[in-house]
Design a protein around this nucleic acid. Sequence first.
DNA 1: CGTATGCTCAAACGATCGTTTGATTTCACT
DNA 2: AGTGAAATCAAACGATCGTTTGAGCATACG
Lengths: 204, 204
Amino acid sequence: MNSSASTKERILTAAEALFAQRGFEGASLRQLTAAAGVNLAAVNYHFGSKDNLVEEVFKRRLDQLNARRLAALKQVSGQPETTLEDVLAAFIRPALDLSHDGGGGLFMRVLARAFAEHDDSLRKFLSDNYGHVMRQFTAEFARLLPQLTKEELYWRIDLVTGALTHAMSGFGIIQRKSDVSEVTHREQTAAHLIRFAAAGLSHP
Amino acid sequence: MNSSASTKERILTAAEALFAQRGFEGASLRQLTAAAGVNLAAVNYHFGSKDNLVEEVFKRRLDQLNARRLAALKQVSGQPETTLEDVLAAFIRPALDLSHDGGGGLFMRVLARAFAEHDDSLRKFLSDNYGHVMRQFTAEFARLLPQLTKEELYWRIDLVTGALTHAMSGFGIIQRKSDVSEVTHREQTAAHLIRFAAAGLSHP
DNA sequence: CGTATGCTCAAACGATCGTTTGATTTCACT
DNA sequence: AGTGAAATCAAACGATCGTTTGAGCATACG
C-alpha cells in the first residue's frame, strides 16, 4: 500500500499532463503509462478504468482549488466594505496559484478541455464538485450588484467565466516576457483579469 | 433525408454535427458516414483523409464567416462617427447569424473545440485562415482606443475573445426561454455580448 | 520459516479505428 | 447501344484502443 501511492501519484501527474496536451480521448493508456514509467495494467488496477482515472485527475486538483476559493471568499463575503474586486480576487487568485505551484500547471487547461467536451457524465461530475462553489460566489456577486436582474447577472457571470477560462488555460496570446519574473507576471495577469471582469460585471 | 445534396455536402454537414458533439477524435468515420447515409469509403475517396475532412469542414464555414465580418467591418472602419459597439457588432453578429441560419448552427461549437485542442497543425490552419481578419479588427480597436498601450489592448481583446467563444459556442448556461422567439433571443444575445465586450475593452 | 497479501509484469483479449482494395454500378457522351 | 471515367459498394487490412488474465515478485506477520 505504500509503494502503490507513488505509482498512483505518478499516473495522476502523467495523466494530467497528457490530458492537457492530447485530450481525454487522444491520450492513450499506453502513452500515459510509458510517460509515468509504470506498467500498462497499473491504471486499471489502481483506478478501475480510464473514465475513473479522468475523474480522479479532476478530484485531486478541484478539491484544493475549491477549498482555496471558498476560504478566500469567506474572508470577504458579507462584509460591508467588500468590493467587487475582492470577490473576483478570491475566485481568480487560487486558480492562478494552482497554475504555477503544486505541479498543477496544466490543470486549468484540462479543465478548459472539459468545458469544450460536451460529455454529459463529465459535466455532471463537474457540476457536482463545482456547483456549490459557483453558487456561493454568485450569491456574493448578487449582493454587490443589487441593480442587476437575476437574468442579467447570470449573463455577465457566464461571460466572465468564459474570459477567465480562456485566459487561465493559456489559450491566450499573451506570453510572459523574458525580462518579467514569474511572480510579477502572475500578478499582472491577476490584475488584468480582475479589472476586466469587474468592468464587465458592473457596467451600467 | 437530404438525398438531393451531393455526397460531399452530406459528409460535410454530418461531420460538422458529429465533430461538435463528439470532437474530432471522438467522431469516427463509421458513425459519420452512417449519419450522412453514404458509404464508409466515400470520405477517403472525396477528401483523401479524415484530417483533410476536418479542414474542409472549417473552410466551408470560415470562408463565409470571414467574408461577412470583413464586409461589416468595412462599412464602419475609419469613419469618425464609428463607435466601439459598431465594430463589436461587425465581429459578433455574423457569428450569431451563422449560428442560426445557413445550417451552420453547430459550427461555432466546432470552432470552440478547435481552440481547446492544442493541435499545432490545426492551429496553424486556423491562423492562416483567420489571422488577417483578427488583425483588421485589432487595428480598428486600436484606433478607437488610443489611450491603451498595445500590450493592454492585446490583453483585453484576448479576454473578449474568450468570452465570445464561450458564449457563441453554447457553453453557457443561458438558454432561450420558450416564450421568446428565436430572432428576439438572438438580438438579446448580441446586445449582451456587445455591451459586455465594450465595457471590458474600454474601462479606465 | 511459511504464507498471505498487495503489487507489478508480459501477454493476450475482443473491439474499433482510419485506410485501402477491387469489383460493381452509375451516367454523360460518342 | 456502346464505352470509359466517376462514383459507390462490401470486405478486408494492419494498427491501436481499453481491459483482462495469470504468473511472478515483494514485503509484513503468525
